[in-house]
Design a protein around this nucleic acid. Structure first.
Lengths: 338, 338
DNA sequence: CTGAAAGCGCTAACAG
DNA sequence: CTGTTAGCGCTTTCAG
């Protein structure tokens, strides 16, 4: 079985104190002793027991990442970058999926008291601002993509209203006038969909158009399937839209698929713009225009926030509100026609 | 700060033993005492310290998942299912990305001695069979998608040769004769690409065709970009293929994109089949035919293996070799023409 | 420079 | 039914 510090000490003929010093590089050890200890270490293939070290240190070197679902490309890409950024800081990431479940989100937020993790990055869907403000948590928390909670915890998100406005304005600039929005989510409390809707309406109004309820389609999830269903409904409606702004790339890809399948010409008859900048969109047919949040920066800043709070627990810096830049990638699905 | 068992005991006027019993539901506790302890528990918002519990129990409740990259749809979907299956077994998953790096893979495999995790699921890319057989590890390991290592550890994988044969045979059955293969990876040691290539060749030979080196395209990664590049090269070649079998859906989607963009009619002029059954393919234009491994079952069986080894460490059951079923989903990209 | 020993918070064997 | 206590393996204070 695996050997302990004590075994190594016995083999090298020194105390555990000295072995510990050699392992961690702490303190001063005579060169001769160090060599002897090192060979004992190698011979036994010693690995420090993480649990014991954690218990002693009061830190685990783990951070939690709680996201709705790992299989969606957006969260998959983001999670990958967070894991990578964490590795660079010598942290290990523990992943939980909430599936947008209120209880799961609440449990994770409150259950962090077990000190399994030194910090938590959570992307809440079902939890509203008031629920995020629970009893004060004992590990630092960073909220991802949540723009309603003020002063509760550090937040990292793009400016959804602005981004949606830009996407819609782009469609208007190509001459579209009946622009549908796919992705309204009245059942979620995180405000993302609401903000994108509001940016969309804002752009329409500025162009002198009036938002039409028939063009604002609700979905139960952000998956392709529901984008496809929403598109079907729109195509079967009385007045077809000439453009679609989908609140996620997945919805947009579902919509695109249905449109192309039914012989609608994209972008000539229908322009499509998505949101998230996932890799799939780049290779879709036609390639999908999309709002691209700087995911790499989301990951970096979120970890930076955690690091600051973890290493300076006494810090009185108020909760940060970090706005991540985004850009609009215009591709074939909304390319200017003739 | 967070309270300890001792604090709760003091508040409730009992010993830590009793509190421990209440928390864990072990032993018998008088109803009256239990109530008193419970209210003390609630009042202090007690959470057991995971590190201490782990140290005591010799288990952490964590399992490691080491995959090349989280952002690729295949691994994203698979990781999601593994996290889900682990949650059901009350395990938490720690994710590491190896990016197919030999050193990273080796480190993870050997570094499991720290007992951070109770078990490890790893999908090796760069490590060959001989390297997998290192010093005997002290936590159970499950190999994913590795079919060369015999008797080293439990393995869970689809029958790549068979699956590739089926995909190729399907293309042959639609009348294709110049079938290209995209995805040869001479630099990787995990054997997956080699096996798919061998299944592909086997099908060709059975049909009386001879494999042509010009039609077997190597790639450096399985990403869409390299599928696109391989397709470009094929289209610019002297004799165009009338079908493509890509060793991953991502490669297939990259190829599909380039083909459609250049006006090649799919499936009339070119049929495309991928491998992995990722969600993107279903909504591609045209929808992508693909070999679909039962990912849910991969996740389930891998966890089952770990559970068996972890809970019966003394088991003498030899390393298992689990073959996961797959199916061929024929969609528009290879639909029979005329 | 190195040894002895306390203690992180918890569980469980051993009393009572 | 409940209290006392010995460690799990490590780091670190205090001596030497």
């Amino acid at each position: 079985m695996s050997s302990r510090l004590k075994d190594v000490a016995a083999l090298a003929g020194v105390s555990t104190r000295t072995v510990s010093n050699v392992v961690s590089g702490t303190g001063a050890v005579a060169e001769e002793t160090r060599a002897r200890v090192q060979s004992a270490l190698d011979e036994l293939g010693y690995r420090p027991n993480v649990a014991a070290r954690n218990l002693r240190a009061g830190r685990t070197g783990l951070i939690g990442l709680a996201i709705p679902e790992l299989h969606s490309p957006y969260f998959g890409e983001l999670a990958g970058m967070i894991v990578e950024a964490a590795q660079q800081r010598s942290w290990t990431v523990v992943i939980d999926q909430t599936f947008g479940d209120r209880e799961a989100e609440r449990r994770l937020l409150e259950g962090t008291g077990g000190r399994l993790v030194d910090g938590l990055i959570i992307s809440p869907w079902a939890l509203g601002p008031e629920e995020l403000t629970g009893r004060s948590r004992d590990v630092p928390v960073v909220l991802l993509g949540e723009q309603q909670a003020h002063g509760v915890a550090d937040r990292v998100a793009v400016d959804n209203v602005l981004a949606a406005d830009e996407a819609t304005t782009h469609l208007l600039s190509t001459g579209r006038r009946r622009i549908a929005a796919i992705g309204v989510q009245p059942h979620l409390r995180n405000g993302t969909a609401r903000q994108r809707l509001s940016g969309y309406r804002q752009a329409l109004r500025r162009a002198g158009l009036r938002p039409e309820p028939a063009l604002e389609r609700a979905v139960t999830t952000l998956h392709r399937k529901h984008g496809a269903e929403a598109m079907s409904a729109l195509l079967e409606g009385d007045e077809r839209p000439d453009a679609v702004f989908a609140f996620s790339d997945e919805l947009a890809l579902g919509a695109l698929h249905v449109a192309v399948e039914r012989g609608v010409r994209v972008p000539e008859d229908l322009a499509v713009v998505g949101f998230d900048g996932i890799e799939d969109g780049r290779y879709a047919n036609p390639a999908l225009s999309t709002v691209v949040p700087d995911k790499r920066q989301i990951a970096e800043r979120a970890l930076q926030c955690l690091a600051d709070r973890i290493y300076s627990p006494a810090s009185t810096v108020p909760p940060l509100d970090i706005v991540i830049p985004h850009r609009l990638d215009i591709r074939a699905s909304s390319g200017r026609t003739g």
